[in-house]
Simulated assay, not measured.
Amino acid sequence: MFVAIPFPEIDPAVFTIPVLSLGDFSIGPFPLRWYALSYIIGLLLAWKYADHLIKKNNLWSADNVKSPVSKDDLDDFIFWAMMGVLIGGRLGYIFFYQLPFEPERLLNDPLMIFKMWEGGMSFHGGLIGVAFAMAYTAHQRGLSILSLSDLGAATAPIALFLGRIANFINGELYGRKTDVSWGMNFPVFDERSRTWMYEDALGRELGSQGNVHPSQLYEAALEGLLLFSIVSFAVWKFKIYRKPGMATGIFLLGYAAARTFVENFREPDSHIGFLPGNLTMGMLLSVPMILGGIYLINRANKPNSGKRLPNSETPS
C-alpha cells in the first residue's frame, strides 16, 4: 500500500509577539511568519551577495575598471527594490489572479488590496515592481538599468529559494494528485489550536485531499538552487557582466523555463483552474519573460554590446 511522506507540520509562525496591554488599550498578538522571514532574510542575503559582486572589478571589465554600480547606488536600490517586490507583488496578484476571475470580491471589499497578511502575492507582479524600481534608481543616479538588472539576476534566486521553502512550510501552493513515492498529504493549519488538521469535525478530509506533488520544493530547487548556480557560474566563469543584459536574459529564460515546467505538477488556483489549451496563469505570464530573455541575450551578443561607460556618462 502506498504511503505518502509525512508533512513536517511546522508552525507557520516562527514566533508570536504576545498581546501588548496599555491600560484599557491592547494590541496584538503579532506572529512573525516564515513567509515574512523569507522576504527579510532573502533581501539581506541578496544585498550581501550583490555587494560582493560589485567589488570584483574584473567581473565587469577586462581592464579591471571599477564596477558601474557603487555601494551607495546599491544601498539606494535595495530600498526601492523591496518596495517594488511588495507593491508589485500584491498588485500583480490583484490584477492577474483576482480581478479577472473574482471581481465581485474586490468590489465588495476594496480594502482587500492592502490585506497582504491574508495571502496573495505574484512573482511576476513583483518582477514588474522591481523593474520600475530599477528604472527609477537608474534615472536618479545616472546608471544603466542593465547594470542593476544584471545584479538582480544573480541575487534574485536566493530570495526565490527561501520564498518557496516558506510556501512549503505554510502548506500552500502544493501540486496535483500523484502516486509518486515522495508525494505528500498537506493538511490545513488551525490558527486557534496552532495545530495542523487533516480532518474536520465531521471526519471530512482537509487540505490537499490526498497525496500530491510537493511542487513548492520543485520550485525551490529549480527557480532557486539551479537558477542561482547557472547564473553565478556564468558570471564568475564566463564574466558575462562584461556583456550588459546577458545575466538578465539568462535569468528571465531560466525562471520562465523552470516555472513552466513546474506548472505541469502544481495545482492551479482553485478560483482560476486551467486556461484554454490546458495552460495555467503561471505559464501565460512566463511568455513575456521568454521573449524578453531571448531579446536581451541576442542584444548582449551583438558587437560592442559589452562597452560600459563610466557612471557619469552612462545613459539612463
Rank of each mutant, 00 (worst) to 15 (best):
G292F: 12
S70A: 13
F2E: 09
K237Q: 14
L284N: 07
L217C: 05
I94A: 06
G277R: 12
K243P: 00
S270Y: 11
E9L: 09
M83R: 02
I27G: 12
W34L: 05
F2D: 00
R33H: 14
L146N: 08
T260A: 11
W236A: 01
N57A: 13
P18T: 00
G129W: 10
H52F: 15
W47E: 02
A13V: 08
K177M: 12
N108C: 10
S147Q: 07
L37E: 02
L107E: 11
L32Q: 09
L43I: 15
P6T: 01
S26W: 07
D51P: 03
E223P: 02
E104Y: 12
I78A: 09
L45D: 05
E172S: 02
L143F: 07
Q209L: 13
D190C: 14
V235K: 00
V180C: 05
V188L: 13
M289P: 00
Y39N: 08
N278C: 03
A156F: 06
L53E: 05
K302H: 07
F2N: 10
F7H: 12
P187W: 14
S122F: 06
A257H: 03
G125R: 00
A256G: 06
I27F: 15
P315Y: 13
S193G: 11
L20T: 11
Y218Q: 04
E102I: 11
Q209F: 07
S208I: 06
I41L: 15
A300I: 05
V3F: 10
Y241P: 00
A135S: 03
D72M: 12
R194F: 14
G175F: 04
S26Y: 06
V262A: 10
M134G: 05
L127W: 10
R299N: 13
G224H: 09
G152E: 03
H124N: 04
